[in-house]
């Protein structure tokens, strides 16, 4: 076996691959089942963007908090939320992560430090400032990561949070997931600055841009700024340039894309292919080992769907439950 040239050991590499494959398989299954009419509501898929969530979350523990977006499945899986509970939630079942009350756009698991996907663009940024403030007050070395799309990075809540985090020197990392589009609108048009690094500089914090389809690039950049935040060095911004493999939401015909664009990004910018090729080429992991993971993940998702479909629906009493802690 060749010497490992990567910043992670073999077990960790396998773990990263498994996480990314789980996200991909989860999303592709939803894509198929949504088209069949099995899944209610709005579903925004993270397929194509797996390296970003995974490269970042490898540096976090359950005590670290994340605040996610409407495109949250990948963040959930990478942060350790149970795949069965997620699937059941998306199917509106009482065994779901939120007992069926939240749905795809609101999956949360506070015990894993996952403060929720979010239906309101930009809403995660102030919340994560609060999470970071709590960690700072407790002195427990916890960090907060908020994800925001290129589109939502234009929200006042996000921009105000950059300033607040800098002024309070909070242990926060603002991750801009730049997939080039907000729904159908191009990032180049909607974002006034040329680079998010400039935006970060304007708010008095370091900014880094990486190729978000390269797991290692994300992993290394995130590692450095998360360590800095943990050590009291303050907030930073990380822009991950990435691609989304499906429509904005399921059902989007994507006519705003250039002809051949999807085929091209799938062929050349698939973060799973990029990671597999690199570890195989380096002789660190065998193709058969990755294929074994693929089979296990496929079984896991299959089980999760079967269990979700068989799970009980929430019933009338559940409607009125949990509005307050006590009333």
């Amino acid at each position: 076996m060749a010497q490992n040239p990567f910043p992670l050991g073999k077990d960790e590499l396998l773990k990263a691959y498994r996480t990314m494959r789980t996200i991909r398989e989860f999303e592709e299954r939803l894509h198929v089942d949504f088209a069949k009419g099995d899944i209610p509501g709005f579903v925004h898929l993270y397929a194509g963007e797996e390296a970003c969530a995974t490269g970042i979350m490898m540096h976090l523990n359950d005590n670290d908090r994340i605040a996610s977006t409407h495109r949250g499945h990948g963040h959930c899986i990478a942060k350790g939320v149970d795949v069965h509970a997620m699937m059941a939630e998306i199917y509106g079942r009482s065994t779901g992560a939120c007992r069926g009350k939240g749905g795809s756009m609101h999956i949360a698991d506070l015990s894993k430090g996952m403060m929720g996907a979010n239906g309101i663009l930009g809403a995660g940024a102030p919340l994560i400032c609060g999470a970071a403030l709590a960690a700072k007050v407790r002195g427990d070395r916890g960090v907060g990561i908020t994800f925001v799309g290129d589109g939502a990075s234009n929200q006042g809540t996000f921009l105000e949070s950059l300033n607040l985090a800098a002024v309070w020197n909070l242990p926060v990392v603002f991750v801009v997931e730049n997939n080039g589009y907000a729904e159908s609108t191009a990032m180049e048009w909607a974002v006034s600055c040329d680079s998010y690094v400039d935006r970060a500089t304007g708010f008095g914090m370091p900014g880094v841009t990486v190729d978000g389809t390269d797991f290692f690039a994300v992993y290394e950049a995130a590692g450095e700024i998360i360590r800095r935040a943990r050590d009291g060095g303050g907030p930073a911004l990380l822009e991950c340039n990435m691609v989304r493999f499906y429509g904005h939401f399921e059902g989007d015909a994507q006519t705003y894309r250039a002809k051949g664009e999807l085929e091209a990004i799938r062929a050349s910018r698939d973060c799973l292919t990029i990671l597999s090729e690199r570890v195989i080429e380096a002789g660190v992991i065998g193709r058969d080992e990755l294929q074994a993971i693929d089979r296990e993940v496929n079984g896991l998702i299959e089980d999760a769907v079967r269990a979700a479909k068989a799970a009980p629906l929430p019933v009338a009493e559940d409607l009125l439950r949990d509005v307050y802690v006590a009333y």
Binding site: T185, M187, W189, Q254, R257, A258
Partner: peptide, 15 residues
């Protein structure tokens, strides 16, 4: 937001 759609993108107008 996206009442036209495709602004700044390379595909169709009024996407």
């Amino acid at each position: 937001e996206d009442i036209v759609g495709g602004t700044g993108a390379k595909g169709e107008d009024d996407a």
